[in-house]
Amino acid sequence: MLISIVNPNDRPVVLDAKGIVKTFGQVKALNGVDLAVTRQELVFVIGPSGSGKSTLLRCCNRLEEPTAGAVYVDGIDILNRGININAVRRHIGMVFQSFNLYPHMTALGNVTLALRRVLKLSTRDANSRGMEALDGVGLTDKAGAYPGELSGGQQQRVAIARALSLEPKIMLFDEPTSALDPELVGSVLEVMRRMRNTGMTMVVVSHEMRFAREAADRVIFMDEGHIVEEGTPSDIFEAPQHQRTRTFLSAVTQK
């Protein structure tokens, strides 16, 4: 309810991607996509498999190098060659479908690696900050557990804590619940909901339409490397303008 009081347009833009083109050989994964995200906004990205959602996110922290276009994070041109990309990336948290926890490190070790190596915190400071981050996702009791000893939902929450502990300006989620058993999805969405309520800026690629309805400020529908349409959740879910959107939505809500 609070959200409607503040006009999102008054807020500073955290992420501004303009005219992103990305080709892989012959494949055009992105065909000129614009994505601007304002502070504390939660943007939901939906679309069929292969439509370029992951590529779009990965262009935003340069895990993929865009073929053309510009990406600004907090006003900084991150595609600039002279830039220290590592200094930029610590401000952009990313959560992956497959968690990608370091299997040879404990949950706490996973969270503290970047704190120690990037922020150069002492082991003690890193550990206390790491424990705070694990507390934020409800996993302090699993600090000493290895990823192999955790459920998928717990692993994903550790991965979220790993990104959050760096206090990023924006968090990118690439299908964070797609690899989870249905009964574990809720715990991860709960953490995301809490992040949203504490004002984190988020871009979420996901098929959790109910979560989108309830938490998103804006929903973007992508197909074939384009943004087909975007709007509020009710715009997109109740009154989609394009046939492709309708087809996609009816296909995913069938399930």
């Binding site: 990336r89 610590r90 990608n100 190596r117």
Partner: peptide
């Protein structure tokens, strides 16, 4: 990707 995305070189 996980490590690089957190800014580790």
């Amino acid at each position: 990707e996980a490590a690089r995305s957190t800014g580790i070189g």
